[in-house]
Design a protein around this nucleic acid. Sequence first.
DNA 1: CGACTCATACGATAGACATCGTAGTACGGG
DNA 2: CCCGTACTACGATGTCTATCGTATGAGTCG
Lengths: 118, 118
Amino acid sequence: MTSTAVTSRELPHPARDEIRLEGVLHALSDPLRLQIVRELAADGGELSCSRFDLPVTKSTTTHHFRVLRECGVIRQAYRGTAKMNGLREGDLDDLFPGLLDSLLAAAARQAARIAADG
Amino acid sequence: MTSTAVTSRELPHPARDEIRLEGVLHALSDPLRLQIVRELAADGGELSCSRFDLPVTKSTTTHHFRVLRECGVIRQAYRGTAKMNGLREGDLDDLFPGLLDSLLAAAARQAARIAADG
DNA sequence: CGACTCATACGATAGACATCGTAGTACGGG
DNA sequence: CCCGTACTACGATGTCTATCGTATGAGTCG
């Protein structure tokens, strides 16, 4: 079965022009999802869902990844049994130049502020 | 209850350091609130609630303004019978430098894209 | 005072959402 | 072929949220 492509397990993604700013902001307004995006940005590549150590069950984790995908923030693809996740940096930067960087910088700044106590 | 009212017309605002990024993003993830913020930014000054022509009732309008205030996005103050609303640009820029501008630019870009249809 | 305007508060309601547990599907290897 | 791993789908639930209508408070002006 070397030829059986992973075609039957395709995941629906919004096209670049279907991505809405409100949706992106909604996706990032959840602390867990913001954390996921920060880790993806820090890694720069693709990470499987199980690489994240989130304080919720697997079901909830799946839910959050789906929200991120359906809002156009990440791209997901199966690779064997794993599901790889990557930021849609290019598409987002085409649509909203500089926004993702600003958001990540803001998140980093807040994290530093909180870490330094508050 | 005429005299005991402790200046019941004061409005609670979060202190600058209490403003959370997630809250700001949540506030702006609603199309109506994003529109309000865009108009406030375009005006640059203060606007009364009634200056906005939103497709919802007064009650709902009040609700959205309150969300924006409680999340630290706008500052509200009474002036006679009117309630004036102004962006907290300074506080937001202290906390998250450049973020507000990026968000407004992204919103403007999306509005232009939608206006040009697709 | 009395009427009018601006905005609020309260109660209700319908829909969205975060979370969980359980059962199930897809893939890879012994 | 059966098992383990990785992720999903479904149903339930409690909470949050956007919306409305109505009644109310606060200020202004006749």
